[in-house]
Each structure stands twice: as C-alpha cells, then as structure tokens.
Design a protein around this nucleic acid. Structure first.
Lengths: 246, 246
DNA sequence: TCAAAAGTGTTTCTTTTACACCCATGC
DNA sequence: GCATGGGTGTAAAAGAAACACTTTTGA
C-alpha cells in the first residue's frame, strides 16, 4: 500500500467518540502498540473522498455501527503538532513500517470530529496501530499522543456548546429512557447539578419528548416513567435551536 | 516561486471579512482577473506555518490592518469543491501561469475563517489573481467562484451563533458609538428588528458598556449619547458568554 | 412648529427559581 | 417502617415584552 498514492497529503481526521454509561461520559480510545500512550481514533483522508466521509469511515471501523451523529468541530493546524522524535519512537517500536517513514514525517493537520453514540451498540475495534480499543471515562483520561488531549478538550467544549443550542440526548441514550437518565446526561456533560423538577418542566416545555405509558421496573424505588424523543419535533429543535437571547 | 516547495499541499485558507458601514453588513471580496466572478480572500498555507497564521497573513495583506478578530469556523473538505474546468478557465485567462497548472489541479481543502473589522480602518488591496478588492453588501453578493457562496453563508451562520453566545460589537464598530448604531448592527446581523428600549436595557444589563459624557452632535435630531466597550468586562463576557439556557 | 430620533419609565406577562408534599419500592 | 428516588404543585423573584410620554434637534 502506497500512502502517497492513496491519501491526501498531510491531512488526517480524528474522532472523539462520546458515549454515556454508568452515569459517566466516556470516550472511545485506542491503546497504541508497544507504547504506554493512547490515542483518539483517527485516519487519513483518501484523495477522492470527502473529509466528512473519511471521518464516517473511521467511526464505522472503530465502533461497527453506522448512521452516527457526527460533527466537525475544529481544524488543528499548528505547525508543531507532531515532531520527529515522536515518529522516531513509532518506527523504533515497529508501530509503523520503516518504508512509510517519510509519510509519517510529513507535517500533518487534522480535522477534529466529535461523535455521539449509543454506548451499548458499540463494538470497539482497534486499528492496525493499536492493540486495544476501549471506553475511557472523561474523568480518567490516560497519557495521550501528540495533541490528542487538547483535541478531547476542544471536543467537550463543542459538545457543551451544542447543548446550549439545542437538544442532545437522542444520540447518546437508548430509545427509551427516564427523565433522571436524561438529566444525569446533561449534568455530566455540563459538569454541574440541575434541579430535578425544574429540569423536567423545562425539558417538557420544549415539546420534544413523548411520555410513554411504561415505567422502568426493577429499580430500587418508585418506578419512573419512560420517555422517548419525538423524532419530528426533536429534529426541528436540532435545526432551529432553543430560544435565543435576542 | 515553487508552490510545491513552499506550501502545504492541497490546503488553503479563506477569510470572510465582515465590516459594518452605512447600516449594512459587508464582506470584502476580490474581483478575479479576466473573469466576471468574485472570490473570498484566501491563500495557501506555508509548510512551516500555523494554519491560523496563514489566515492572519491573508487578512493583513488584504486589509492592511493587524490585530484583527479572527476565528476559524469550518473546514470545507468536499472532494468536488473544485473541478478541472475551473482550472482550465484560469489557465486560459492567464490568471495563473501554465507551469503552476499541476499545483492548482490538486484537490484542495480549505479552512474557512471569519474576521470582524472596523470598516474605516481597512485599506482594501487585491492579490495577484484579482484586479480589485472591494466591500460588497451581504444583500448584494455577485457571482462567486467555486463554493465561495457557501463559505459566506456558513460564515454568517457562525457569526449569528457567536452573537447568541456573547458580545460582538467591539470588532465591528469604532471605539465610540451610539446605542442605535450598536442595535442596528445587531439587527443587521440577525436580520430582524429589535425593540429600541428593551435592547438598550438588556445591553446595559450585561455591564460591558461605558456611557460617555459626550453626545454625537451634527445629527438631524436629538444628539444621542456615545458609548464605548469596557475592555475588561467585554473580554470576560467574550469568554464566559451570556447566560446559558441551563 | 413639526417630524423624527433619543431619553426614560411603567405595566403586564412569562419564565425561572426555590421550595414542599405525597407516592412507590426494596431492604 | 424507613430511606430513597420519583411524581406533581406552588409562591416568590426575576426577566422579557409591550407600550407612553417627554426632550432635543434641524429643517
């Protein structure tokens, strides 16, 4: 395989994949071969491929699911994102083949995407440079390669920003969920507690939820009602956003 | 000059430069040589140059001012952004030299930036591919090359989004301005009218304005007070934003 | 003196905030 | 029975919206 032939030079995509599980926000990370470091899933962009499609491809390969909520959030274009010593170690550890050395020594810019996925649907799969692919809580991120910590930080900012604008939950929660689960998701993303009753009233006022006739039984306490998102109204709010300041 | 030597392959930046004049929002555009089409100011990224710095460089060259408010807003990465027929016409019209043909026939991705500038400070300067550099009202955009119309559309969306989050005016208005000028700016960006009195109350409540002891005389009517932005408080709000929904 | 823009204030309505109380369930 | 989470309601405060009246200015 000739990277120079196949891929757009000096360009990669990186996907910060968010999932919600055990009341925690997690990201899907790759454990690099022969290294203690981890990485955000990424890949190169084919010469005849939309950049967005490259991100979709990476996402599908790592999670084994399709039709994922995916948004570009930033281009990381600093000239010193990588350096030779980093590539030296990759070659030395046989993570990359020596004849691909010059490809990896290019200066790379990378397009950051963030994805929202339903945790339980994902089957994590490592790529050829990694030995494991795992969910890692945002509160416990290990040592990451290059500027990948910054990429995650920016992705979280973008996600929080998105939360201010419109609804989020549909992509992170299962089809049916309780109001507390939805609220916990919001609290986790925002990093602050929200009043249980006021949250419910406000969320219902958006008109994007359908209250189901079912309750979640088996819990230790009173069985809470289940809700689902009203596709049509949810999508409207996604586009138009909630109320503006002006 | 050898483009392949100097520049990062397949990568450009485009800057949508917003200015406010005559109660209109305008963008700085380039009239292409030997063509009826216009373009958003742009350029290539040097191999050892931050992408942000490339945008700053372009901006400085076109406007002849420095320290401009500039933000990256989107990477345009579709595989069919350009096509051969476009480059054919450029070569035919001698806009680009024939020996640079292969550089321009690459597939390019471009990073979109938007800039906010004080209209009166700008001295528009065309680049080597254009014959004129002019302010054009957003309501009257001429035929543009490639996907530049889409780039402007997205830039405007980004600007509106920014307006929801925090203050904007400081970069678009002169140091001293009337409340009506500020309101008109907001109305222009948002594309809707705002109540004069409620706008004033709300804007003052943010605490980012200093009311000056001067008035703007010479107008046809009662002389309005002048305001200026309080640097410190303005910058705070820029970072923290106005009130959130949650 | 009059039209048009600007300064200032008030009333009303809506939204947000901060609570209280009762209900269901497992231990 | 009691601790815990869940359902629902309400009073008070804050904020937004709609609107009226007065002042100043150039023509």
């Amino acid at each position: 395989m000739d990277y120079f032939e196949l891929y757009h030079p000096g360009l990669s995509v990186d996907c910060v994949i968010f999932g919600f599980h055990d009341n925690e926000l997690k990201v899907l990370l790759l454990k690099m071969k022969n290294s203690k470091q981890w990485a955000v899933p990424g890949g190169f962009v084919k010469k005849q491929e939309d950049v967005d499609d490259a991100a979709i491809r990476v996402l599908k390969e790592r999670t084994n699911i399709e039709d994922i909520y995916l948004r570009q959030f930033h281009l990381f274009g600093q000239k010193n994102r990588s350096d030779d010593s980093y590539v030296d170690s990759l070659v030395q550890d046989h993570v990359i083949r020596e004849d691909m050395d010059s490809w990896f020594r290019q200066r790379f810019i990378t397009v950051g995407y963030f994805a929202l996925v339903e945790f339980s649907k994902v089957t994590p799969s490592p790529d050829q440079n990694s030995e494991r692919c795992e969910w890692v809580p945002l509160t416990n991120i290990p040592d990451l390669i290059l500027d990948h910590q910054e990429i995650i930080n920016e992705a979280l900012k973008a996600l929080r920003n998105k939360l201010r604008f419109g609804p989020v939950g549909k992509n992170l929660l299962p089809p049916k969920f309780t109001m507390t689960e939805l609220r916990t998701l919001y609290e986790t993303i925002l990093g602050e507690e929200l009043d249980r009753r006021n949250f419910q009233r406000k969320m219902l006022s958006f008109g994007i939820l359908d209250k189901l006739d079912e309750t979640r039984k088996g819990g230790a306490h009173k069985a809470p009602f289940l809700y689902s998102f009203n596709e049509e109204k949810y999508n409207q709010k996604l586009i138009k956003g909630f109320d503006t300041i002006w």
